[in-house]
């Protein structure tokens, strides 16, 4: 006999089959709410949203001469005066160096280590949420966050670009001009590519997150990994290891701005991200399976 005083609460017969999916979606929604309604994460997203606005204003006040600028981000700067769409690309380029990885570090640090630090990891595991299920849900949430963060940067870049600058057919890096719709489709592809790059970083983050109960340690470690990776990537003497660095392919999205699209660069990037997700996903899972939860 269980708690007799709960008898008045009706218990419907669970429908087998679809139940695991519905239960998982409910858990996933709860996880998303926790990440996206957390004041600290909202502040992070606000900073990410503010960056394109700030960049747009600066470039409006001090408009660079059309065609000016150099390689990398410079290639976009020179075009912004002629086409606001490039503000979106410029913002992604600028934020991809540190700010986007920082946001991913914070959220992936929170994912397991943060729960351990709060003690809520033991609450969830005694529910029981299931260790593998919890990890999968956490990672799915990180991926959603990566897409949301990138989309916010690109979206606000586009919006502010459209307000401050003319918008029209897009002149690609290869010199061809394509219709605006084509340009926007390419921008969408770039958002996906960058979000996947950040999701791969998030996989490293969640793996680190299973080893500690200090979210801040995960965040710092992951940022150090990003910065070292970016520094090594700039040192030509170690060119042999460049393709294996986590950040090496992040900026390869410029291939999507050429005609014809240089798919090989993009596909190499995606393969690299997939490799990172698999390797660190397995590490996280193996660790999560066996870890003693003493927090």
């Amino acid at each position: 006999m269980s708690t007799a005083s709960v008898t008045e609460v009706p218990q419907s017969t669970p429908a087998p089959g679809a139940a695991p999916v519905r239960h998982w979606l409910r858990f996933f929604r709860s996880e998303l709410r926790n990440v996206f309604l957390r004041p600290r994460n909202l502040a992070l997203l606000a900073v990410l949203a503010g960056a394109p606005v700030f960049l747009g204003m600066v470039l409006r006040i001090n408009t660079p001469a059309p065609g000016s600028g150099g390689p990398g981000a410079g290639a976009f700067v020179g075009q912004i005066a002629g086409n606001g769409v490039f503000l979106s690309l410029f913002a992604i380029y600028v934020l991809l160096t540190v700010l986007l990885p920082l946001a991913v570090s914070v959220v992936s640090g929170d994912s397991v280590a943060g729960e351990a630090g709060l003690g809520t990891l033991r609450t969830l595991l005694t529910v029981p949420a299931g260790r593998t299920r919890l990890l999968a849900t956490k990672y799915a949430t990180i991926v959603v966050f990566c897409f949301a963060a990138t989309l916010i940067v690109a979206g606000l870049g586009l919006l502010v670009g459209a307000i401050f600058f003319p918008v029209g057919p897009v002149t690609l890096l290869s010199g061809d001009t394509v219709p605006l719709a084509d340009g926007l489709a390419r921008l969408a592809l770039i958002v996906c590519y960058v979000a996947l790059a950040m999701s791969a970083l998030g996989a490293i983050g969640i793996a680190l997150s299973t080893f500690t109960q200090h979210a801040i340690a995960v965040m710092a470690t992951l940022l150090v990994v990003v910065i070292i990776s970016e520094i090594l990537d700039a040192v030509s003497q170690v060119a042999a290891i460049h393709p294996y660095l986590p950040s090496h392919f992040w900026f390869s999205f410029d291939a999507l701005l050429r005609t014809p699209i240089a798919w090989s660069g993009v596909l190499h990037g995606l393969a690299s991200f997939a490799a990172y997700v698999v390797i660190f996903g397995v590490i996280a899972w193996a660790r999560m399976r066996r870890a003693d939860i003493t927090s």
Partner: peptide, 21 residues
């Protein structure tokens, strides 16, 4: 609600009533 959402075998239609109870 979060604890209940984490439960893979919770009874969904009664969630609100069970939490209140």
């Amino acid at each position: 609600a979060r604890c209940d959402a984490a439960d893979p075998s919770a009874d969904l239609p009664t969630a609100r009533a069970r939490i209140d109870h």
